[in-house]
Computed example of a mutant assay.
Amino acid sequence: MSNQRVFLSYSYQDREKVDRIAHELQSNNIDIWYDQQDLDVGSNWNEKIRYQIESSDTVIIFLSKNFLSSEWSQRELWQALSESEKRNINIIPVTLERVKIPSDLSGFLILNLGNSEAALQKLIHKIKTIPEITFDHFTPFEFEKFVGDFLREYGFANIKHQGVESDRGFDFKAEYKSKTPFGTIQIQHWLVEVKFYRHERFSINSIQQLLEYKRHLLPADIKLLLVTNSILTSVVESYLNDFQKIENTQIEVIDGLLLKKLVAKRKRLLDKYFQI
């Protein structure tokens, strides 16, 4: 049985379709939970669903007209998104039919399931892929090279590796182009710091150092990105949030959990670095 625990969020009116998919997931050794009977309205719903979502690693959202018109399904969606903000659980939205995607899910990769066997196999692969992604085989130099490719895959341009010549500890300079609502091209300038840890946990000193650079040495329009294979502790997250509120400055952080999810969306990275 897979170490991943998967919660299925669906409308009870789509029960027949979801039963078929659930059976296929179980036959592929995926540990799933979904409520197989219509829940009564009341406090038990909140407690039961919240517990199941909080104890899951992945939540699959089965989007349909029934789901989008159901108050209870919308509550499940809200609960899943709320939990994902706390601990970066994996959310996989799939469509059972042609529907308008909720704005809350616009940033997610949507899988069109329908009745396609190929799409179902793709869903199974997606569930199993994230636990298999590991950064343990990298050396620090190889991890930096991987991060450079990762930045390209996510639309960064003019990426320059600073290497040992950097006097501020940043590993990459990069640009990101986007359009304003009026069609004007806007160029953001980024400094990227890469932190690779073999065994130890992420150090709060790394965050403190970057924030000091941002506050005292860097122009206000320079954006900072920290990419690490380690997992941010609650202490680091709390410190970062408090500092950014007080200083009105921002640093984007991609830790090991989020990095796995972003890599899983890019086939070229999977093929080149992880052979999954």
Rank of each mutant, 00 (worst) to 15 (best):
V99N: 08
S106R: 13
E97R: 06
N88V: 15
G114R: 11
L111P: 05
S116Q: 12
K100C: 10
N115C: 07
E117H: 13
L109G: 07
L109N: 14
L96G: 02
S116V: 05
N112K: 14
L105F: 01
V99R: 08
P102V: 01
L109C: 11
K100Q: 13
E85M: 09
D104V: 13
N115K: 12
N88C: 15
N88L: 15
S106D: 05
G107P: 05
P93E: 05
L113K: 02
S103M: 14
K86S: 13
S116M: 03
G114N: 09
L109T: 13
I91G: 01
I110M: 06
R87V: 01
S84M: 15
S103W: 12
L109R: 12
V94H: 07
S84A: 15
I89N: 11
K86Y: 14
F108H: 14
D104P: 11
G107N: 07
P102Y: 00
F108A: 06
S103D: 10
I92P: 00
G114Y: 03
L105E: 02
R98I: 11
G107M: 06
K100F: 04
N112G: 12
L96K: 09
S84N: 13
E97N: 01
I101W: 01
P93Q: 12
G114Q: 12
V99W: 06
L111F: 02
L111K: 08
L113I: 03
V94P: 07
S103G: 11
S103N: 13
K86M: 14
L105T: 04
T95K: 05
L109H: 15
N88Y: 14
R87K: 05
K100M: 01
E97C: 04
E97S: 09
F108L: 08
P102I: 00
G114C: 06
T95S: 04
N90I: 04
N112I: 10
I92R: 05
K100T: 14
I92S: 00
V99F: 02
I91A: 00
F108G: 10
I110R: 01
D104C: 11
I91K: 02
I92Y: 09
L96Q: 07
I89E: 10
F108Q: 09
F108T: 08
S106M: 11
I91H: 01
S106E: 07
I92L: 00
L96E: 09
D104Y: 11
I110V: 00
N112Y: 12
L111R: 08
S116K: 08
E85R: 10
P102D: 01
L96T: 05
L111Q: 10
L105H: 07
N112Q: 13
L105V: 06
R98A: 15
I91C: 00
D104A: 15
E97G: 09
L105Y: 03
R87L: 02
S84T: 14
I101T: 04
I101F: 03
N112M: 10
T95V: 06
S116R: 06
D104K: 14
D104G: 10
L111G: 10
N90E: 03
D104R: 12
I110F: 00
I101P: 03
S116L: 06
P93T: 09
F108K: 10
E117A: 14
S103V: 12
P93M: 12
G114D: 11
E117P: 08
I92K: 03
T95G: 01
